[in-house]
């Protein structure tokens, strides 16, 4: 296995782990749409993660394409930052395009 395939691989050698690394799974439901996050699973490497994602998340014909990403590679925003990070947007309604009158003929907007 190449270093690139190891989740969170940094080239510094992997310490022994009890549990298989976690992977985030993204599925594209049909051509032209985005891949959407649909869950996570444990697998030893990327190849196996794809295979398991197929069995765990596409049993009911949900997707045409699968991405897996090592969970360790995801950097998340800090929920503790919410006050300065997210809340200021709540009262700025002028940032939403809600002040246009749309003609009735216009559909799918």
């Amino acid at each position: 296995m190449s270093e690139a395939e190891k989740p969170g691989g940094t080239g510094g050698g992997t310490p022994p782990v009890q549990e298989w690394p976690l992977w985030e799974v993204f599925i594209r439901s049909k051509q032209g749409l985005d891949h959407k996050h649909c869950g996570s699973l444990h697998a030893t490497d990327a190849k196996q993660a794809i295979q398991m994602a197929r069995d765990v998340y596409t049993r009911r014909n949900e997707g045409v394409s699968i991405w897996v990403v090592p969970s360790a590679a995801i950097t998340a925003s800090d929920p503790g930052d919410r006050e300065s990070f997210v809340d200021p947007m709540a009262d700025k309604i002028f940032r939403h395009p809600t002040f246009y009158d749309l003609p009735d003929e216009l559909k799918h907007m």
């Binding site: 298989w20 699973l41 444990h42 697998a43 295979q51 398991m52 069995d55 765990v56 049993r59």
Partner: peptide, 11 residues
């Protein structure tokens, strides 16, 4: 042995 294999076997 693991949940993911459980589902694969069932499939």
């Amino acid at each position: 042995p693991v949940l993911e294999e459980d589902i694969a076997s069932a499939n």
